[in-house]
Write a protein that binds this DNA or RNA. Structure first.
Lengths: 288, 288
DNA sequence: TATGGATTGGAATTATTATTTCATATTCCC
DNA sequence: GGGAATATGAAATAATAATTCCAATCCATA
């Protein structure tokens, strides 16, 4: 308005991260009460998003006017515009991951650099995690864990895309001192390995469409020998579901032609650690 | 207040899901304009959470008074209390994963069943993903991809906990027709394998504390031969960081003693697919 | 088609909330 | 220690938003 005043055209933070950085940056030089509200804002961003100037000021132990001065000091013209940033943050975070994923796919295809690809994989993983925590059936998890906890040896069966999960399960079972056998395809000794399994053992089998024929074949053989199978797969039409005593449907989002493994991993780890716990409990009871 | 009025003690929905169910349930019997705002509310919950009665009404194409009647019909005493439910929903969803993770850890340790364990792993994965998407340096990613895109053969080096990531990288590189060699410990031929690597190749090495000695040893040897290394590790003190041409710091949250792999996986996939793209681009240029 | 009840639109009213102002207190520098 | 500049508190004011009210309209039913 006036020509003499400081022009104040210092960049006003428009997004939360910039704002956060700005605040942290100036933290030292802020007056006491302003610093107090600044700290409160970063600690309780949700309150800023939803509260009224009066309620926030009260929670932070300052006057409403201080809150407004804080906003102005950051370059906003009032509390309301500062609040917008905090609200936008909630919107962003909350905006359906699916939508974001769509956008990112488009962006990546448009050749928007490698950051877009990375963001895409992160979004795919997040989507998958959201999804599975909505859909996982607690009772199935309990069943699977009980079944596996009773097994003498746990066989882990997975090829190709699912193999990383299997190898992590094997690693974790090993660390928990649970006897296990990873059925790899490397040496071609799978048939022999499988022949050792008895109904007192159990199998964790993982396979997604297009199902690796070897996995299906081995699962069939092993189930015909009466060994119970816990399966992780992607649909009720999966051949694995047929052979399994307990099975989980996991829908992983994909990006750039590769599916996420995050949901499968989370489930696999929960099963593994669950079995470890259950075994400890049983051990304790036996002693008592 | 009055004794004669309808007591209105029909359950007022306190959480979003109940509210949603209530609305869907009554949908048929609602008057036209009320139905219109009801549909809008379920389609744009964020707008309800943040907007003012006037702005929402305008977006939905109704009068503010209709919005209030809608709220009252549901048993709320006004728009404001209806809005609370929509705001609470955002808070819930958004409640910092870290806090949730803390709570879940406590719950799981208190022996609250296996669902809590599962939720813990999901939360750990989500936290890690959030973290890495905040901290990843785009320039490093570009550097790593350029470096790997030039390599004749990409060697993938990881043991124990990191091995699943390595195997997924190898799988993905294979699918993309990029020559690669997974350095496994199985047959004990690692030293020989490594000896084949030349400065025209490149290595992706992954290791987290406690760093598997074999990984470190092999990384050292290979870097001494002048083969460039891209490392994924967990701190700048990591011995891997020393040998690496480019390295990434990835902080994975842990739960029940096992770290998530989700952030590492996302980064690994972005690198892999990024290399695939870059190669295609180069191929196209050569032709042109 | 006339009639009563329900529904709707729009403006008036009331309540709430942000912002400004000014007196008082604190801090910092000479 | 004095004085100017800055910071703070509290209440007044202005702005904005929610709610209510009433007239107009629509709709079903006789």
């Amino acid at each position: 308005m006036s020509l003499d005043g400081p022009t104040m055209d210092e960049r006003v933070p428009r997004d939360f991260e910039t704002l956060r950085a700005t605040i942290l940056d100036r933290r030292e030089s802020l007056p006491k009460r302003i610093a107090q509200i600044a700290a409160y804002a970063l600690d309780n961003p949700d309150d800023i998003a939803f509260g009224t100037a009066a309620s926030i000021a009260a929670s932070a132990g300052v006057q409403p006017s201080t809150l407004i001065r804080f906003a102005q000091q950051l370059g906003f013209d009032g509390f309301t515009s500062l609040q917008q940033v905090f609200r936008e943050r909630l919107r962003e975070r909350n905006s359906s991951y699916d939508e974001r994923l769509q956008a990112l796919r488009a962006k990546a295809e448009g050749g928007a650099g490698h950051r877009a690809i990375f963001d895409g994989f992160v979004a795919a993983a997040s989507t998958s995690l959201n999804d599975i925590s909505r859909t996982l059936d607690d009772a199935h998890l309990e069943d699977a864990i009980s079944l596996l906890a009773k097994a003498q040896t746990i066989y882990v069966l997975a090829k190709r895309r699912s193999y990383p999960v299997a190898s992590y399960i094997a690693y974790a079972l090993g660390k928990l001192n649970i006897r296990n056998q990873l059925i790899e395809s490397a040496a071609g000794l799978n048939a022999e390995m499988i022949a050792f399994a008895t109904p007192a053992d159990a199998v964790i089998a993982i396979s997604f469409s297009p199902y690796a024929p070897a996995t299906i074949e081995e699962a069939r053989t092993i189930s015909e020998h009466g060994v119970p199978i816990v399966a992780i797969t992607d649909s009720s039409f999966s051949p694995l579901a047929q052979f399994a005593r307990v099975w989980f449907e996991v829908a992983e989002a994909d990006f750039a032609g590769f599916r996420s493994l995050s949901a499968t991993m989370a489930l696999a780890m929960a099963m593994t650690v669950g079995v470890g716990e259950k075994r400890r409990d049983i051990g304790r009871k036996r002693k008592a």
